[in-house]
Design a protein around this nucleic acid. Sequence first.
DNA 1: GGAGTTTCGGTGACGTGTCAACAACATGTA
DNA 2: TACATGTTGTTGACACGTCACCGAAACTCC
Lengths: 149, 149
Amino acid sequence: MDTAWLGADEEQAWRAFRRLLIALPARIARDLARDSGLSAADYEVLSTLSEKPDRRWALRELAAKMEWSRSRLSHHAARMQARGLIDKEPDPQDARGCLLHLTDDGFAVLEQAAPHHVVSVRSRFLEHVSADELSMLREISTRIADLPD
Amino acid sequence: MDTAWLGADEEQAWRAFRRLLIALPARIARDLARDSGLSAADYEVLSTLSEKPDRRWALRELAAKMEWSRSRLSHHAARMQARGLIDKEPDPQDARGCLLHLTDDGFAVLEQAAPHHVVSVRSRFLEHVSADELSMLREISTRIADLPD
DNA sequence: GGAGTTTCGGTGACGTGTCAACAACATGTA
DNA sequence: TACATGTTGTTGACACGTCACCGAAACTCC
C-alpha cells in the first residue's frame, strides 16, 4: 500500500532496513538468553548499574539514562530483584525515591555474560561492516535518533 | 586485536546504532497508533494481505512471508478478527490450514492509514538520509540480515 | 493400505511493555 | 505556615510475543 507513495529505491531500502531492525536485535537477544540466561533488558540494567563506582543508581535517573519509563523500570526491577540480580534501597536524599543496587550475584552474572555478548555483537554485526561503513552508520544513527520525538 | 572487547570506535558506533534500533521503530509505531489506531504488527498483516489480489493468504504462508511464528500470527489474527479487520476461512487445499482474509473494513482502515504512515517514515527516516547513504544502508542491511540465524 | 513422522493452527502459561491512576513526598508561592 | 502543584515509584489492566504442547490432518515409505 505504501508502495504507491515511496519510490522504488526508497521502498527497497526501507524494507531491507526494517528487516534488519527486527532481525539483528532478535539474534543478539537470543544469543544472550542462551549464553547467560539474561534478556536484553536485563543486560542493559546490569551494565548501566555497573558503570557507577558504588553500583547504585536512583530509579528515576537510571530510567532517564536508559530512556525507559519509570513504570517499565519499576516492573523490571521487581522481577530482577526476585532473581537476586539487584537490590532496592530507600533514597536518603528523597524519601519518595529508591536506589537500585547491583548485587554481587548480579555483578558476577554480568561479568560472565559480557564476553559472550561481545562475541555475539561482533559475529552478528561488527565483523560484517567495514570501518568506513561503521562510521557512516554511527553518523546516520546519531542524526536520526537525535531528532525530536 | 583482542576480540573479547570492543574498541572505542566500535563501542560508540554500536551504542549509537542500538539507540536507533530502539528509537526509530518506536516513533513510527507511535505515529501509526495515533493516526490510525493500528500497531506496527497490525499494519504489517493488513498490508501483506492486501498484496494478494483476492486478499486471502494461508496462515502458514503469511507467517513465513512476514518471518513470524505461526503461534504469533494465530494469536494476532484472533485479536484482529475480533476487531473486524480480517476473517478466517477453512483452507480448501488443506483441512489443517486456514485462510486469512482482509475484510472490507480492514482494507478501508489500511487505505486510511497508508498515506499517514508514508509521511511518518519519510519524516522520521528517509528525509534525513541522502541517496548515497540510503543505498549503502540497504546494502549493509541486506548483508547482515541475510546472515544465517 | 498402514505405521511412523511431519506439519498445520490453536492454546495456556509466562515474561514483558504501556497506560492511567494512585499515594507519598517535595517544592513553590502566598 | 498552609495550600497548590509537580514528581517519585508502584500498581492493575491490558496487549503482545514466546515457548511447550496438543489434536488433527497430511505426508512418507514400506
